[in-house]
Nucleic acid binder design. Structure first.
Ligand SMILES: [Mn+2]
Ligand SMILES: [Mn+2]
Ligand SMILES: [Mn+2]
Ligand SMILES: [Mn+2]
Lengths: 259, 259
DNA sequence: TTGTAAAGTTAGGCGCACCTAAATATTCTG
DNA sequence: CAGAATATTTAGGTGCGCCTAACTTTACAA
């Protein structure tokens, strides 16, 4: 006697190892790795449905190119993307859906951590990068609801809706703005904590006003004037790496000097 | 040119696959599976440092016994436990530390979900079972701090301190109490949502007063009188499975009938 | 156009975390 | 105490997710 129930199994797995999970990933639960790949590909290719290159994916995920090559084959088998060997990959509709779902999860978590748990904005990304795979849909929805369905994350990136739609406002890099352009910061790339701390120290945050004062020659540094929230105006010289991490909206005409 | 930085690697892994991670797990990051194993073994063997049996571990984790056998060898290599083949396993000091760390994480998360995100008490366990492996120490500490360093989780289980100590109050099962025993519910086993919903419907929760009125013969059902919070008194007949899931403190003398 | 550099893929391998089938050790029972 | 029942381990195998080394394809430049 003593039933020694031992239900599930057969398909029941633990954390990562063995098991089936093949075929067309329709509604299937994806692995954390697969989730990160589709998210990265979406971010590289853009909402416009362009193609992403193997080495770019490898670079972004810090994975060796042959590993990416192998994974792309699997993602193609799952029908999350189409793979033109030696050319690149393009997400299918299912792939874009999966990517937008992950972007929503990631950004809701970041926003929750920042607003409800006082996380500094340079540390939310790393935490969200792991939690996004572990949280249930219910948890994401409860977080979003608690926050009042936020529209943007702490770095200014838009949060896809529960239904998987996201405003597709074309981003421009501060690095590409001409001298004289007066722009508003929409978002800051969030994967480098040190860079985030640095730009924050310059008052460069979503919503800040930034005017390009001067561009160094030969892809040189930019001199920018930053209008902080308290009406303060400060001028800084920032390198291209920083200027490429800062996204701005369309310039609203060259600002006259000394308005 | 174009540095194509591709730092880390060599030891840098992704979500689960390949890599080193051998030897004595001193301060090492453990895999999610390893974390679940030590937690399960601690719960089975008790704080007293007893031994846990292979099939019991297999049963609790819903994993086939041969898989457990193999994992126990690895846990022994990590010096998280000692393995007496065909006899059982005993956690080492490092193993107990790891287990208590996981118990703290699990229970802090459960408490946070219940108190800050209005999670119903029957759903926090499944969510915590996954998040406990993904959350950083910082996140756990911020949650605990936000909650005011809670001492017990939503099911009444004690939360180990940040330093890894936990009050070791011996638990008694309601199922073992003699007729007439008047006890207070300390905790309820939380792994079966349906059972949790059921006992909550009977007002059996941590803090509730329960008196054993009658015991059915041959390991039969118990008739209990439950004093709810609002001074209500209700009598129920509960099966042994339920009575075994409810933990109570030491009985405070037989209650006289009709006080 | 042809050679070379860069990008991408194939081949082979490893550890993790599972599985089933079969063997073995231990415990219970008559 | 022999045989049966139960517990546990060994043997062999799978998919995931990564790696390095070697090869192939594509892009660029003299
Ligand atoms: Mn992020
Ligand atoms: Mn991630
Ligand atoms: Mn629990
Ligand atoms: Mn777990």
């Amino acid at each position: 006697m003593s039933p020694s129930r031992r239900t599930r199994r057969a398909t029941g797995r633990g954390h990562s190892g063995g098991g089936a999970r093949h075929g067309t990933a329709a509604g299937q639960a994806l692995t954390g790795s697969v989730e990160d790949y589709v998210k990265a590909i979406y971010e590289l290719a853009g909402a416009s449905g362009g193609a992403a290159a193997t080495t770019d994916i490898a670079d972004r995920l810090a994975i060796a190119p042959p590993s990416v090559s192998g994974m792309l084959r699997r993602l193609a088998a799952l029908e999350l993307l189409t793979h033109e060997p030696y050319k690149g990959v393009t997400l299918t509709a299912a792939g874009r859906r999966a990517a937008l779902r992950m972007l929503r999860r990631h950004r809701v978590i970041e926003t929750y951590l920042a607003r409800q748990l006082d996380y500094p904005w340079d540390r939310v990304h790393a935490e969200a990068e792991r939690l996004e795979h572990a949280a249930s849909d219910e948890l994401i929805d409860r977080m979003a609801s608690t926050l009042g369905e936020p529209a943007v994350d702490p770095h200014g990136a838009p949060i896809p809706s529960r239904e998987g739609t996201m405003a597709d406002i074309p981003q421009r890099m501060l690095a590409d703005q001409p001298v004289g352009a007066r722009t508003r910061v929409t978002s800051v790339s969030d994967d480098d904590p040190a860079l985030l701390r640095y730009v924050a120290s310059l008052d460069i945050r979503p919503g800040a006003s930034v005017t390009v004062v001067e561009r160094g020659p030969f892809e040189g540094p930019l001199t920018v004037r930053v209008s902080g929230k308290g009406g303060t105006e400060r001028q800084h010289v920032v390198g291209l790496a920083v200027a490429r991490a800062v996204n701005v909206d369309a310039p609203r005409g060259p600002a006259r000097r000394g308005g």
